[in-house]
Design a protein around this nucleic acid. Structure first.
Length: 927
RNA sequence: GCGGGCGUGGCGGAACUGGUAGACGCGCUGGACUCAAAAUCCAGUUCUGGCGACAGAGUGUCGGUUCGACUCCGACCGCCCGCACCA
């Protein structure tokens, strides 16, 4: 015995103290355990591959041991030429922030369960890991700590890698990639140039959030209340020439193909569909009456409501519309109004409260169906330049924004669509526009038509009518989706491989010169783009004419890096090309992708774009969709603790007490009572974090894995509680004891199931096989919480079976049944608690690894019972159970049901009207 | 505003395509073991009434369909998420 009872006792105490005294890597008050017994146990067990001979499972000894054995035997290494059917399971790779958090634990545990399960079922499983290693935090760290982003990033990768290894994940580490490695990003640069060739990359002007103090572009989320997050300066809108991926070229396909993703959450497909935002409408030109020296002779508007054309009261163009600029040249009032529009923030709050304002240009537009009908032309703050044509016609009766606008400027409204059930003679619009369908009124030749038919009629007539030499209108499909701007004025990103030459323009970096590597010698003590300030890096000769030229100093958005990493995993060793056709063909699409819902739109849409662009440029064969199955897991949340002074406390620094008035929290050091706050996403600011390292070192990885799979459905948030973790830890011990008991009753390893079992042995087999069948269903459908419950239930039933059997004499059939039960139980838990399973597997006398053992075969015939218990209802309320032969006829069931005493009582002597029998399910007596 | 989702014990949650509501876990109560505690094991735990067998009520609220509704339909209340001046 390595662990004696009194040593165990000691350890439990110390473990409990340990668990509550841990802090997220910031400080550790509790001295490391250096008591002799633990160390003795540690060294002995590691040197000895025999199972631990103990009443108590010691995760701290077992976990490193099995991790080492898995690594030595390379059992998780995946070979591309393995002939078995493939299965590719992938979790969204992490940003190397420094330490893993509980969200990672949950995400990677789920993926690992699937990987281990599929491997046991005979698939050739690809389960790789890498690092989304470019990004701003590295640059911020450089700025704050004077460390180089590369050093900071690689140090973080090293520590997070060892953390992930401590979780016992069945990953193929030989395929590890980091996006900041030139060996990775050189292929990305090559693809950028291929996309450029194919017309999928364009350069155009675009508005950005500009921080005038830091001289840098800010992402929207870096603008807080209109100010730069770091400098606090008021952010300006600036136009910069930037690089764009033409994601809009695939808008239609990206939308339509969502229907071919049945294994994606409906919610995500819907979000993407909304984001792409397809609308069908009419691009329609209005003729302008020339005035004020304006040369423009027409305005093109886009509308989805051509049916409301006779309700038009005005036209409006965006402040950035060319026409507005043209008029403003000679109209200082308008110039002032346009400037005012530019000052209004783009934040949600600003839009919400912004009044609808306009400036009357004095221009008049002619109604397409009536040259004498003149509509005033406004410049309006609510018209967006980057949707449609940047110009609209306003129909106030049937558009709320237009109505708000006319109510300010007194233009009035005419209803032209009468809602169903309204009287057209009395129907009026006041403060609320009617935006639904109906029948046309006040609309000349459209009167009486439905809105649908009226749209069609207007389109038909205006397509036939000409203005200038062209039809006055054409049907158009518009998308909300914009091209993807990828230019970032940052150092720590993939350099955009082009050179700007005064004579030749934009010149791609020749393939032979790739990669364009980031310079190492950098200073980060000034704001702005460090690459731009580097003394020599950007000065190069033009590859085309040899004249002095300037290297592009913008780097790519980090979303580019993560848009194709899943493809790189299929052959990360290919030095000459991003992908190898045969292995792309073999491995893609990813069968199961798992990650957070926060990536529902951008990352997943960009990856879908990339597979299409890669296909167009020959990097991918016929594939279009990268992820056949997608699962979005919930967050790990925790309650918050706060002192009276408003100071947050880490859960590890808080002691919970159960009082008569419920749970109360006390700060351990000061004894001060802390208010228990709402359960929220774990965050550093509220200190409601639990460090996976602490959990793994005090309870073990298996406990952490088991806990994050338990209780909550995987797509929902899981609440981290100390009680819950302890429950998981207890179950680890319980399973270890149970397997020990089963081992003492089981026939030797390798004994087949009993051929002619007694009733008792049969019952054990039935329970075990039934559990296995349900467990498989749950895992296949990613219902891990139910799978966990299934294991609990099986453990309970086997405990009962052991208790029931002990007093009797045990036959060989019982021994054989327990052998099967023990083996099945351990193999079922192996995907979730792999270390414990190995230890149990060895304790059961097996010489191989549980991780290398085929999944047990469930016998569906076995679970079919001869007799079944049918619930019997009277008028829909359950009154009794009826035990009948499985194949009993309806007449026999009816008679037996009516003979039941509780049924007779419930009938109160009333005559039976009819009896409904649903075979194998239920009997309902209607009286 | 638009789009989507969800409301079940003290808590997290189960309940397959309409068929025994509350699996499983946490917590709690009682008991066994112990000098004692921890751990472990056993029993109980939706609510109301009853010592009890049992009876009644019960899945946010109200109504409907059905032999039968957590599940389907309608209205309402509450919470959550996404998008947001997209013409």
């Amino acid at each position: 015995m390595l662990c004696r009872p009194n040593w165990n006792r000691h350890c439990e105490r110390s473990e409990a103290i340990h668990a509550t005294s841990r802090v997220s890597g910031l400080r550790r008050r509790c001295a490391p355990r250096n008591d002799a017994p633990c160390h003795l146990a540690l060294t002995e067990a590691i040197d000895d591959h025999k199972p631990m001979d103990s009443e108590r499972y010691n995760a701290r000894v077992a976990e490193p041991k099995w991790q080492r054995i898995w690594e030595e035997r390379e059992i998780f290494r995946t070979r591309n030429n393995d002939p078995r059917e493939k299965y590719y399971v992938l979790e969204m790779f992490p940003y190397p922030s420094g330490r893993i958090h509980m969200g990672h634990v949950r995400n990677y545990t789920m993926g690992d369960v699937i990987a281990r399960y599929k491997r046991a079922r005979g698939f050739n499983v690809l389960h790789p890991m890498g690092w989304d290693a470019f990004g701003m935090p590295a640059e911020n760290a450089a700025w704050h700590n004077k460390t180089h982003p590369a050093d900071w990033t690689y140090a973080n990768i090293a520590s997070m890698r060892s953390q992930l290894k401590a979780m016992g994940l069945s990953l193929d580490w030989s395929r590890e990639i980091a996006t900041c490695d030139p060996a990775y990003y050189k292929h990305q640069q090559r693809m950028f140039l291929d996309f450029l060739d194919a017309g999928l990359v364009v350069r155009k002007k675009s508005k950005v959030n500009w921080d005038p103090l830091d001289h840098t572009v800010l992402a929207n989320e870096q603008v807080i209340d209109g100010r730069g997050w770091r400098s606090g300066a008021l952010v300006e809108q600036r136009e910069l020439t930037q690089w764009f991926f033409k994601i809009t070229a695939f808008a239609e396909d990206l939308l339509a193909s969502l229907d071919e993703l049945p294994r994606w959450p409906e919610k995500v497909r819907l979000m993407q569909a909304n984001w792409i935002g397809r609308s069908e409408g009419l691009a329609l030109r209005f003729e302008l009456d020339r005035a004020k020296g304006v040369k423009t002779s027409e305005i093109e508007v886009y509308t989805t409501r051509a049916d409301t054309l006779f309700g038009a009261k005005f036209l409006a163009v965006a402040a950035d519309h060319p026409l507005a600029a043209e008029i403003a040249k000679n109209d200082p009032g308008l110039a002032g109004f346009i400037a005012e529009c530019h000052h209004v923030g783009t934040s949600e709050a600003a839009i919400e409260t912004a009044e609808k304002k306009g400036y009357d240009t004095g221009l008049k537009a002619r109604h397409p169906f009536d040259p004498d009908w003149q509509l005033p032309v406004y410049v309006a703050n609510f018209v967006l330049m980057d949707y449609g044509t940047g110009a609209i016609f306003g129909c106030p009766a049937h558009d709320q924004r237009d109505l708000d606008f006319v109510n300010t400027y007194g233009l009035g409204n005419t209803p032209v669509v009468c809602p169903p059930g309204e009287d057209p003679r009395t129907f009026r619009i006041a403060a609320i526009a009617y935006e639904g369908d109906g029948v046309l009124i006040n609309s000349r030749f459209l009167d009486g038509l439905t809105t649908q038919a009226a749209r069609e009629e207007v389109a038909r007539r205006l397509e036939a009518k000409s203005l200038g030499n062209r039809p006055q209108a054409r049907r158009e499909v518009h998308y909300r989706l914009r091209d993807w701007g990828i230019s970032r004025q940052r150092y720590w990103g993939c350099p955009i491989p082009v050179i700007h030459c005064a004579a030749c323009g934009v010149v791609p970096v020749p393939a032979a010169d790739l990669p364009v590597e980031l310079p190492r010698d950098m200073s980060f003590d000034e704001p702005g783009n460090p690459l731009d300030r580097h003394p020599s890096w950007k000065h190069v000769a033009c590859p085309s004419c040899g004249a002095p030229a300037r290297r592009e100093t913008d780097t790519m958005d980090t979303f580019v890096d993560s848009s194709w990493y899943f493809a790189r995993f299929t052959d990360p060793w290919n030095d000459v090309a991003a992908t190898t056709p045969a292995w792309i063909e073999k491995w893609l699409p990813v069968d199961q992708y798992i990650g957070g819902i926060e990536h529902a739109i951008l990352h997943l849409l960009y990856a879908r774009f990339f597979t299409r662009a890669m296909q167009a440029t020959g990097h991918i064969g016929v594939l279009k969709e990268p992820f056949a199955g997608l699962f979005t897991q919930g967050m790990v949340v925790h309650e918050t603790y706060r002192s009276k002074a408003g100071e947050w406390f880490f859960p590890a620094d808080v002691r919970i007490e159960m009082g008569s008035d419920g749970r109360r929290a006390f700060h351990i050091d000061s004894g001060e009572e802390a208010a228990i706050g709402p359960i929220e996403k774990m965050s550093k600011s509220k200190k409601n974090t639990v460090d996976p390292d602490d959990i793994i070192s005090s309870y073990g990885a298996d406990t952490a894995r088991w806990f994050v799979l338990s209780d909550s459905p995987p797509e929902r948030d899981v609440i981290w509680t100390e009680e819950g973790v302890q429950g998981a830890a207890k179950f680890v011990q319980r399973l270890w004891r149970l397997v020990g008991e089963l081992a003492s009753l089981a026939a030797p390893a390798g004994t087949p199931p009993p051929t002619n079992p007694s009733q008792a042995a049969m019952e054990i087999r039935r329970v075990v096989h039934m559990s296995l069948i349900k467990f498989e269903e749950d895992i296949e459908r990613l219902r891990f919480n139910r799978a966990v419950a299934q294991v609990h239930e099986l453990a309970n039933k086997l405990s009962v079976a052991i208790g029931a059997i002990e007093s009797e004499t045990i036959g060989q059939d019982i021994h054989a049944a327990f052998r099967e039960a023990a083996d099945f139980l351990v193999l079922m838990t192996a995907p979730m608690m792999p270390h414990l399973a190995e230890e149990c597997w060895a304790a059961l006398g097996h010489t191989g690894l549980a991780a290398g053992t085929a999944w047990p075969a469930a016998d569906r015939e076995l679970v079919v019972e001869d007799t079944i218990a049918l619930p019997v209802q009277v008028n829909g309320r359950k009154r009794a159970d009826l035990v009948v032969a499985r194949d009993a006829g309806n007449a026999a069931i009816e008679a037996a049901a009516l003979a039941l005493e509780p049924v007779r009582r419930a009938l109160h002597g009333k005559p039976v009207k009819k009896i409904i029998i649903v075979p194998q399910r239920i009997v309902n007596v209607v009286a």
